[in-house]
């Protein structure tokens, strides 16, 4: 039997790795990859709670499906923005995109 706390610990570790990626990466695509890691950790948490605490209510799986849809749209729009910035500025380093910095 795998205790629920193992899943929660792994999920917390994965989320922290994603946070580090978002904060430390210079490349905008690297930042997006960090966000994907964080979303995955959240999904893992949701499914683990569904399986261990409320297996009769399907809401945990539905919530995860909605997160999938949001992640897909986030990736599509985010990468479109990055391509657009790359066309205009020839860079995708997050610290060089300072057009709207006061």
């Amino acid at each position: 039997m795998i205790p629920l706390s193992w899943y929660l610990t792994l999920s917390a570790l994965l989320f922290s790795v994603g946070v580090f990626g978002v904060l430390a990466r210079r490349n905008a695509i690297g930042i997006l990859m960090g966000i994907e890691l964080m979303l995955n950790a959240v999904n893992l948490n949701l499914v683990a709670f569904w399986r261990y605490l409320t297996p009769t209510a399907i809401a945990g799986q539905v919530f995860t499906l909605i997160v999938f849809a949001v992640a897909a749209s986030e990736a599509a729009v985010g990468l479109a923005l990055i391509i657009s910035i790359y066309r205009r500025r020839s860079t995708i380093a997050a610290d060089e995109i300072n057009l709207m910095k006061w």
Binding site: M1, I2, P3, L4, S5, R51, Y52, L53, P55, T56
Partner: peptide
């Protein structure tokens, strides 16, 4: 959380 085991699926 440490003790919770997976309950049988309905």
């Amino acid at each position: 959380f440490a003790q919770a085991g997976p309950t049988g699926l309905p």
